[in-house]
């Protein structure tokens, strides 16, 4: 049942022209950024070569690219999740789901995996783009893997939060703005607090992504992402159950 709802969610996302426009613009931006970063790196390479322990291609091109995608996910995920529940309610199509033998948990998980599936596709496409560097030079696979994991975990947390906000309203645009504002708020909390130990710093998923972005695989970060996701999925389930 979860798979059915996830496939339906993914299909309805791909049926929207706006999804394709967003994906197209995103790929263009990332491609452009990769080229300009490569340019800059090639210019700097002679100087880098003189340093002991100079950063490699992966650390100076691939990791910043992943960091850029993590910021773009902050903007894109609320746009993907905004319709999940809000539009069903606005168009009154939720009656079909609510009168079917589907539990609120299955409904929330189905929608979550649908949106996360789209984000995962986007992240894998991004990794292929960055992986194209491997045609010219060996890459640091460990760092790439940490970044892939980080991006997937980040997309999971953002999707769960976006879904929860989508259950709060019947207007997709309000859900999008609410999701974006919350994620930006979290990001600002992280960016503005200087102390890495401060609670405001650590409450933001982006702060935990930075560790993975640098290649640091810490189980505390992974646990944070999983707990963050779980908490918002639970909140969304309670909300859907309460709305009936």
């Amino acid at each position: 049942m979860i798979r059915l709802i996830a496939a339906h969610e993914l299909r309805s996302l791909f049926a929207l022209p706006s999804t394709w426009v967003m994906l197209g613009v995103l790929e263009f931006l990332l491609g452009w950024s990769l080229l300009s970063r490569m340019d800059a790196w090639l210019e700097l390479q002679p100087q880098l070569a003189q340093l002991a322990n100079a950063p490699g291609v992966t650390a100076s091109i691939a990791a910043p690219m992943c960091s850029m995608l993590s910021l773009l996910l902050l903007i894109l995920t609320p746009l993907f999740t905004m319709r999940s529940f809000a539009e069903e309610r606005r168009n009154q199509t939720d009656a079909l789901l609510l009168s079917s033998p589907v539990t609120p948990r299955q409904l929330v998980l189905g929608k979550f995996f649908g949106v996360f599936g789209l984000c995962a596709l986007l992240i894998v496409a991004h990794l292929l783009l960055v992986g194209a560097l491997a045609l010219g030079t060996p890459l640091d696979r460990g760092l790439l893997f940490a970044n892939l994991l980080g991006l997937l975990l980040l997309a999971m947390s953002y999707s769960a939060l976006g879904l929860y906000i989508s259950t709060l309203t019947a207007q997709p645009i309000v859900a999008a703005i609410g999701g974006l504002a919350t994620l930006l708020g979290l990001w600002l909390a992280e960016a503005s607090s200087g102390d890495a130990e401060a609670i405001w710093h650590n409450i933001a998923p982006s702060a935990h992504f930075q560790h993975l972005n640098a290649g640091l695989l810490d189980s505390a970060d992974i646990a944070f992402f999983l707990l963050f996701t779980l908490a918002f999925l639970l909140l969304a389930t309670c909300r859907v159950r309460g709305q009936q």
């Binding site: 309805s12 049926a15 929207l16 168009n91 199509t93 009656a95």
Partner: peptide, 8 residues
């Protein structure tokens, strides 16, 4: 209001 997904 029939619960129809208009894009299907």
């Amino acid at each position: 209001t029939p619960p129809l997904y208009r894009d299907m």
